[in-house]
Amino acid sequence: MALLKRKKASITKSVTKTKDCSQLRALLIADSAQDRRCAARDLIGCPHASTSLLEQLACEQETSVRQVILSSLTQIGDQPAVTGLVHCLRSEDVSLRNEAIEAMKHLPEAVAPIMANLLNDPDPDVRIFSVNILESLCHPAVETWLIDVIRDDKHVNVCATAVDLLGEVGSPAALTELNNLKQRFGDEPYIQFTADLAIRRIQGG
């Protein structure tokens, strides 16, 4: 036995025959996880793909398939995809929630119009997750949204998460509200710490 001589045959040349959309939809609920991943990946070009993917996501147990579904939803990035991802933010499944946050970071154009609503959601957890999304969202309004949060939000952890991020993206425009926040949560050492750090970083830059 030894190192094999190169031979073209070792690489599958036979391109998998493209399946049509109805076949892919059937495959998305197949028994084999590999088939489901494959369908989730190839459904991208099909009409109403987001709806099919979200339906499967709701009941999919296999982590690897969920990951591929979420990647495909991110690549599609249409309104149904985003609505479905927002729904995932309310899930009690931590993995699903975090995967949805990661996916939404890649969809600035689709997420921006609903961001104000998300940041005013009655559930503080959803508001925290929305600030988490802002962390990597490439959008010019990120700082304004964060300043609104630290001015208006009553929940200490929502504000704390926003200040953490302002330390990175904040400009002098955030200074007034950072100082106000320190007053508002005068007895919270963490707020004092993170706001001071943000202020120092903004002034130092």
Binding site: V94, S95, N98, E102, N132
Partner: peptide, 11 residues
């Protein structure tokens, strides 16, 4: 921490 990307605190 619980909420983290890739692998959360529980996992």
């Amino acid at each position: 921490d619980i909420n983290m990307p890739k692998m959360n605190g529980y996992e």
